[in-house]
Simulated assay, not measured.
Amino acid sequence: MSAPRVTVLDYGSGNIRSAVRALEHVGAEVTLSAKPDDVLNADGLVVPGVGAFATVMKGLKDVDALRMIGRRVAGGRPVLGICVGLQILFEEGVEHGVRTEGMGEWPGTVERLQADVVPHMGWNTVKAAEGSQLFDGIEDERFYFVHSYGVQQWKFEVTQPAMKPPMVTWADHGGQFIAAVENGPLSATQFHPEKSGDAGARLLSNWTAGLR
Rank of each mutant, 00 (worst) to 15 (best):
V46K: 12
L9S: 07
V73Y: 01
V84W: 07
A128P: 13
F143A: 03
D38T: 06
W170L: 10
P36N: 07
E141N: 05
G102H: 03
E139F: 01
N183H: 15
S132W: 04
D172F: 02
G51R: 03
Q133H: 11
P78D: 04
G150Y: 06
E101F: 02
F135K: 08
N15H: 05
E111S: 15
V181H: 13
H96V: 01
V26N: 06
G12L: 09
M1G: 13
F145H: 01
Q114W: 00
Q133I: 08
E130K: 07
F90Q: 10
E130M: 00
E139H: 08
R212M: 09
Y144N: 10
G210Q: 15
L66R: 14
I88M: 04
L45G: 03
N183M: 02
C83R: 09
R17P: 00
V117F: 02
W170F: 02
G76F: 05
Y11H: 09
L40W: 13
N206S: 11
G14D: 09
E105L: 10
R112H: 15
M121N: 05
S13L: 02
G93A: 11
A162E: 15
L134E: 11
M1N: 06
V181L: 12
M163R: 10
G81W: 12
L45E: 01
V110N: 14
A128Q: 10
A128N: 11
K164G: 05
C83D: 13
A54N: 12
H173G: 06
E95R: 04
L66V: 15
V126W: 04
L203I: 14
R71I: 01
V8Y: 00
G59V: 05
I138H: 04
H96T: 02
G174L: 04
A162P: 00
L45R: 03
A115S: 12
G93H: 09
A54C: 02
F177C: 11
V56R: 01
M68Y: 12
A42S: 15
T55A: 14
T7R: 09
R72A: 13
E29F: 13
H192Y: 10
A199Q: 04
V110Q: 05
P193Y: 09
E101D: 12
P166C: 13
L45V: 10
S18N: 14
K61N: 12
L80G: 02
M57Y: 12
